[in-house]
């Protein structure tokens, strides 16, 4: 009974989308964007996922007329998002360059003397304050900004491995990189975020 109602509502919504009715689009955008973002975030960081989801909706304006209704609308939308994300990652791979050359982030490498000892060591311990860090809205905004500036593959590696807790072999598969390259990508990305948090903790600036 319930699914019947939902099916009817979906059929009505699809008719509205095909007729290019703006209010139907507004409704669909509100219903389906959270799920589409979740799919995109499986592959990409937040900023890139938003880009992809926006572009997908623009595509839907014309593509909805080819939608045959054999799968549900949600499944169809999620497939479009997943395909776009994969394409985007494939393009990003072609830019792979010096990212794998050294595991040490240049900004951090500067902080050692010639013998490899700390010249400018970390000044504060924030390991115990991890909870407080998480609660800090300004820090999270700053994190968003810096994630947006990471090279795409570093960002994806970090998001997949850390935020989505994917296994290493899955991440390697999705990104098309070797296990040792993934280690370097992760470590480089973490060091950049580490440096960002350190600056934020010491100066309050992003």
């Amino acid at each position: 009974m319930d699914t019947q109602v939902t099916d009817n509502q979906e059929a009505q919504l699809i008719r509205g989308l095909r007729a290019r009715d703006e209010s139907a689009f507004r409704e669909a955008v509100r219903n389906y964007t959270p799920g589409m973002m979740a799919v995109a975030r499986f592959y990409l960081d937040h900023a890139a996922a938003e880009d992809v989801v926006q572009d997908c909706w623009v595509t839907v304006v014309t593509a909805i007329r080819d939608f045959e209704g054999r799968s549900g609308l949600k499944t169809w939308l999620h497939r479009i998002v997943a395909n776009r994300c994969k394409n985007r990652l494939r393009t990003a791979h072609r830019e792979v360059n010096t990212e794998f050359s050294d595991a040490l982030e240049p900004e951090l490498a500067k902080r050692f003397d010639a013998r490899g000892h700390w010249q400018s060591p970390p000044r504060q311990r924030w390991s115990e304050a991890a909870d407080a860090l998480l609660e800090n809205g300004a820090l999270n905004d700053c994190l968003d900004k810096h994630l947006g500036h990471l090279p795409e593959t570093q960002r994806s590696a970090l998001m997949l491995y850390e935020a989505h807790q994917r296994r290493s072999d899955e991440v390697c598969n999705i990104l098309g990189v070797s296990a040792s390259n993934l280690r370097v990508l992760l470590h480089r990305a973490r060091q950049k975020i580490f440096l960002m948090v350190e600056t934020f903790q010491e100066t309050g600036e992003c």
């Binding site: 973002m37 991890a130 975020i193 580490f194």
Partner: peptide, 26 residues
């Protein structure tokens, strides 16, 4: 200290949520 802070960084990444700004996206 460095290692503890790097560990805190990974915890931060794990807890980083993306619900914010959804309104703006819509």
């Amino acid at each position: 200290t460095f290692l503890g802070n790097l560990r805190a960084t990974t915890a931060l990444m794990r807890g980083h949520s993306d619900n914010r700004a959804r309104e703006a996206l819509v």
